[in-house]
Design a protein around this nucleic acid. Structure first.
Length: 273
DNA sequence: CCCGGAACCTGAAGGC
DNA sequence: TGCCTTCAGGTTCCGG
């Protein structure tokens, strides 16, 4: 499930192949994924546009186009972007293609999504995106003080708060669990009850965990893969995420899985208090 | 504003 | 072997 490190990896992998290239064709096989503007306009306005820049905001991948518009991708749970030098649009055994972009280089960019929940929007500006997202956890302005102020008076569990994109952008289920393990904080603790020291530990843990995720090119537990089709290796470095029943790396206590907000949450009941 | 739960999706995994 | 149920989790919407 692509979270910040996975989307950052996709961005870095695509950059050298897409910058300066122009979309020549667009085929959308699952019309509901094209959110904005109308489906017809989406298909009409993209051909002829050059990719000038690619950025990431939270879990969103943003392609800045020559018209000044932006193409905003969200992978949700099972979406991935594949870059293919010689995709012939007939059938190469690639499954779950929901949209295919042709490029003037002859290559193709494929959006593949088993569960069809991923989305693409063609927007005039990213204001709407900015309005629903909190700060970037790896930006220099995301200070420990900024983090603390966002946890104040929040009664919900710290796990739920970490996954709230308006509090911090880009953290999802896996990296929230890893951050809480690293900071030795129990996921069910109400956010407002964390001590100053715990909030500082968690602030640092978030950055460590995300940077490691990026260095390892993301975690391929599910459908996520890099644009060249290869998996990331971060899943091998996770301490608790998706490791229910396995011994904790620190104390050997079995990792526990509980639901929080209907999300599987993994933690060490001995290390995290 | 804050919080929690349902809906959107469908392949994979597990039970019988 | 095969049918059936449950699970997976990011975002949006809705009700309290």
């Amino acid at each position: 499930m692509p979270e910040l490190p996975e989307v950052e990896t996709i961005k870095k992998d695509l950059l050298p192949f897409l910058i300066g290239k122009t979309f020549t064709t667009i085929n959308v096989y699952w019309p509901r994924m094209a959110l904005e503007p109308s489906f017809d306009e989406f298909c009409r306005q993209i051909p002829g546009q050059k990719v000038e820049e690619i950025s990431r905001r939270g879990k969103y991948l943003v392609m800045h186009l020559s018209s000044g518009q932006a193409l905003v991708f969200h992978m949700r749970m099972t979406g991935s972007l594949l870059y293919m030098q010689d995709f012939d649009s007939i059938n190469k055994g690639i499954k779950y293609i929901t949209a295919a972009f042709g490029l003037d280089s002859g290559a193709h960019l494929l959006f593949c999504d088993r569960r069809k929940l991923g989305t693409i929007a063609l927007v005039d500006n990213t204001n709407k995106l900015e309005n629903k997202l909190g700060p970037e956890p790896l930006d220099s302005n995301f200070t420990s003080e900024a983090f603390k102020s966002r946890l104040k008076a929040r009664k919900a569990s710290i796990k739920a708060i970490l996954c709230d994109q308006k509090v911090i952008a880009g953290i999802g289920n896996m990296y929230a669990d890893e951050s809480l393990f690293t900071a030795r904080i129990h996921p069910l603790r109400p956010a407002e009850n964390l001590s100053e020291a715990e909030m500082e530990q968690l602030h640092q843990a978030i950055q460590e965990v995300l940077l490691r995720g990026i260095a390892n090119a993301g975690a391929s537990f599910s459908d996520y893969c890099r644009p060249n089709g290869e998996p990331g290796i971060q899943q091998d470095s996770f301490m608790v995420a998706h490791r229910g029943g396995e011994p904790c790396h620190v104390c050997t206590t079995p990792i526990v899985r509980i639901p929080i907000r209907n999300r599987g949450t993994y933690f060490c009941p001995n290390c995290q208090v």
